[in-house]
Design a protein around this nucleic acid. Sequence first.
DNA 1: AGGGTGACGTTCA
DNA 2: TTGAACGCCACCC
Length: 104
Amino acid sequence: MSDEQEPGKDQKIWQVVAAIPPGKVASYGQVAEMAGLGRQARYIGRALGKLPRGHEIPWYRVIRSNGQIAFPQGSDIYHEQVSRLQAEGVEVVNGRVAMKQFRW
DNA sequence: AGGGTGACGTTCA
DNA sequence: TTGAACGCCACCC
């Protein structure tokens, strides 16, 4: 058996995202490095878009490096992310997360 | 095999 | 501070 398994980058990413402690947030770039993808931050969003059904991945804890939500303001998905973040105790103002929750 | 794309990031104006 | 343009690089068709 050779091909043991492709760890599947997507799954690796989900694992990293799931490792984000509640009440905190991480940027795509941070997750990318933690997952070993390096600068491939864009892939993070793509992987999150491929999340399977019934997942327990806190995708909403992943935001841009500047603290902004990765979705256009006004979108349903945007409101959902903000709502979940606030539920975790994260301050979200004008689609931006307080810098405090950044340095974790 | 090639080209376009993107839940990003950084720099410039 | 905000907005626009460019750069990166793997994935999909």
